[in-house]
Amino acid sequence: MGLLKRKNDVYSALIEGAEGVAYTSFYHDAMRRLKKDKIAMVCLFVVAALIIIAIFAPFIAPYEEDYMDVGNELARPSSEHLLGTDEFGRDILSRIIFGSRVSLMVGVVAEAIAVFIGLVVGAIAGYYGGKVDAVLSRIIEIFASFPHILFAIVVMFVLGTGIMNVFIAIGVVGWTGLARVIRSQIMQLKQKEYVEAARASGGRNMQIIFRHLIPNCLSTIIVVATMNIPSDIMYEASLSFLGLGVQPPQASWGSMISEARKFIRQYPEYSVFPGIALIVTVLAFNLLGDALRDALDPRLKNL
């Protein structure tokens, strides 16, 4: 089960004629639908490119993240510094390239934390119902009712600054939406007769949750997580903009925009370039999330 095609496994070895039989899983269908979506493919390309850039940043970037070209501060774009330099003479292009690591890591790590919390809380509330659900639902409401960025700031103050703490703060803030969706989905799914059948042959609660309920929520999880990534990236940018995120000299698009603010009149390109990187990335994830939703789970449209 899953996105990967199965190898010719134990089945074909045992059954004559099984080799040639076509079978389409739900995910194969979804991938086919997704491949037809041109916007989705462009976004997927952008995201893939971003991932490659982030991984190979040291090889792609013309300069080190913290290399200062002394005497060449706040330079205009030139052949030496394609996008110019900042007030310390650091190459802006290189810092944008290195900054992609932070943004992507936020998307992956912070969202993974959020998905983990949201999934556990949502699944337990939905599956067990009753008093357990009542308590967990209140907790979800409490977390959801704080203004996110304010809450993240509070968490950052408690944990201290630093990139790992940014991930934690954003993850701890951003799980409630998923928890709600998963809760209501599990509530519906647990009434299915295949769940009853599993129980009738001796399935335990955890086996039922992991074998039946979560796999049937998987498309929802993928869609909601992808749609959350842009806002996670924005939160990181905001926290770094406020000086609570990455610490200098490490680059993040948010901290770059924050520093560039002081020079926005004389050197607008300093803030424009990281801004473009941020917008393109956020847009790509956003549109990809929409396309995934259409391909995987159209019911989520009114989310």
């Binding site: 079978y23 899983s25 739900f26 007769e193 295949y194 009853e196 059948a197 796999p215 049937n216």
Partner: peptide, 17 residues
């Protein structure tokens, strides 16, 4: 002790072979 169900759609998990 086993059971089989009425609904040919709801009784099989759509994500399993």
């Amino acid at each position: 002790l086993q059971i089989m169900f009425q609904d040919p759609y709801g009784s099989l998990n759509p994500r399993m072979t």
